[in-house]
């Protein structure tokens, strides 16, 4: 499904991505983790067309999306949410979802026919607030709306940038169940960035760990947590006694 090969990106003198590679299959939930400044959001920005990579390639299914803009990436089937929520705050909840559904109707009419906006809103407990401005929703509801809006795009790849940020334990648990339901109902590949490692371990099939712009480990969760480079990044090097 998604194949990212040796993507690099430099901002001024800072190399934010160094030949970063990852893949994510249809129906898979991949956790993208790493310390602050590791390059996770930059990589998601490169995948979703927000940033143009200096080198490397991004392919979705058989399509080369390297250097394509955000419109083309979205039309190819990549939907995303943001670390800092970015809703159309003055538009209503329903209109926020409808904006994404325009593209789905345009490029994936079959998928659009299967997406019922009313049902989607009800599924994310937003039906009662469908006609109020999105900016008036609570923080948790805004997070849910961002996911509902991304799903209205009928994505084949969903990128969730820190979806559990600011949520308490029970809200995170509910969110994890919702993401599993997305996999079940939409069958799309899902990449989740988050710092909540319990949430990530509970949810993801595989992990991809980044540090200083590089992918330092990837594989099944148990294997990744045994990797000495990952232990060093998260725990620090053991001091010689």
């Amino acid at each position: 499904m998604l194949s990212v090969e040796a993507v690099s990106k430099t901002f001024g003198g800072v190399q934010a991505l160094r030949r970063a590679s990852l893949s994510c299959a249809t129906g898979e939930i991949l956790g993208l983790i790493g310390p602050n400044g590791a390059g996770k959001s930059t990589l998601v920005n490169a995948i979703s067309g927000v940033l143009r990579p200096d080198a490397g390639s991004v392919r979705l299914a058989d399509r080369d999306l390297t250097g394509q803009g955000p419109e083309e990436c979205a039309r190819a089937g990549i939907a995303r949410t943001f670390q800092n929520i970015r809703l159309f705050k003055e538009l209503t909840v329903r209109q926020n979802v409808e904006v994404a559904h325009i593209t789905c109707r345009d490029v994936r009419p079959d998928a659009a026919g299967r997406i019922d906006i009313d049902r989607l809103l009800a599924q994310y407990e937003l039906d009662a607030a469908a006609d109020v401005p999105a900016g008036t929703l609570s923080y948790g509801s805004q997070r849910r709306l961002e996911i509902a809006r991304a799903l209205a795009l009928g994505p084949s790849l969903l990128l969730l940038d820190e979806p559990a940020a600011g949520l308490n334990e029970s809200e995170s648990e509910t969110l994890a169940e919702a993401i599993e339901a997305i996999r079940r109902d939409f069958g799309c590949a899902i990449i989740v960035i988050d710092h909540d490692l319990r949430f990530i371990n509970r949810l993801c099939d595989r992990l991809c760990v980044m540090d200083q712009g590089q992918v330092i480990a990837s594989g099944g969760t148990a294997d990744v947590w045994r990797d000495p480079r990952v232990i060093e990044v998260y725990v620090g090097q053991a001091q010689p006694s």
Binding site: V50, P70, R75, R86, F88, K89, N96, V99, I102, C104
Partner: peptide
């Protein structure tokens, strides 16, 4: 019209929804 209103609020995000700028 809805796409234009959304673009007037946040043009960058509207592009991420696949709306042609």
């Amino acid at each position: 019209g809805l796409a234009i209103r959304a673009a007037s609020r946040d043009f960058a995000t509207v592009r991420l929804m696949g709306i042609r700028a």
